[in-house]
Nucleic acid binder design. Structure first.
Lengths: 141, 141
DNA sequence: TTATCTTTTTGGAATAACTCCAATCTGTTG
DNA sequence: CAACAGATTGGAGTTATTCCAAAAAGATAA
């Protein structure tokens, strides 16, 4: 048992930012910790701003958005588009898909390893597959 | 060859609205024709408003949205959520999935019959699968 | 360290896509 | 046709997100 984040709080996150070519600024470090220090999560910009404020981190909304997008481009986050009018950012960037509970806006991951999507048609001319998203929309019964 | 929409322009659409329990008002009829008389399409609210205006149909934006949602509930349309910040409405309600060209916001259908999604995990407790969406995100190369 | 340069951050204004509402209008039914 | 429920409307309101130009903060060089 190694209480890493307690003894060397910034080190791991700092390296991830460096590796991604992002300057480890105060805001980016703080947001990265909020995002990555608590396992897999699905976060909206507003939630993250709230958590930052709550944790005493001063960040503007503009920076929240900038950071979320930069992290996404760097492959540290994945943007999940399932709900019209709001984007979720997923800290799980491994190969997986989503359950989306309609109405309550809850998202759950499930591993892609277990499922098979076969016989996909060829993509439109002049395009290349970038990713395949499977969204299983469920309803509470 | 039966030029149906030329000789009995309102009849088919009228029946679809009736069947869906929607009063066939002037606006709904006009929008239904714009939507359904030209094969499978992916339309945004703004596009539809534009087409209506262009075709001399007077409709407000509020009605466009009301109608799109009512048609969706009635199963005449399907809402496609792939692009953060805008909804597409698909006049193809058969079992199919989508190619989405990132950047250019183009959507293409592909039939679900050809593909297989197997070994889906069980949905979260107390929920039932309503639909499975497969979105193949492609990029121009 | 300081000077300098570049990148980031910021508040606030701006935009985009909807949604809401109260007044008006229109199908429908008796 | 009368009367009422349902539909439509313009405009204001909301929500999520982006834009912008000024100020601040890292990085680099000397």
């Amino acid at each position: 048992m190694k209480p890493e984040s307690a003894t060397q709080p910034f080190a791991p996150v700092l390296d991830r930012l460096r590796a991604a070519g992002l300057r480890p600024t105060r805001q980016r470090l703080a947001l990265a910790r909020l995002l990555f220090d608590r396992g897999d999560r699905h976060v909206t910009a507003e939630q993250l701003l709230g958590e930052a404020a709550h944790g005493g981190v001063r960040v503007s909304m503009a920076t929240i958005y900038n950071t979320l997008h930069q992290f996404t481009h760097a492959g540290l986050l994945r943007e999940v588009v399932v709900d019209p009018g709001r984007s979720y950012f997923d800290t799980n960037v491994s190969d997986h898909h989503h359950f989306f509970v309609e109405g309550s806006s809850e998202l759950y991951d499930f591993d892609a390893a277990g499922i098979e999507v076969r016989h996909l048609p060829v993509p439109p001319d002049g395009t290349r597959i970038a990713r395949v998203d499977v969204i299983v929309r469920v309803k509470k019964d």
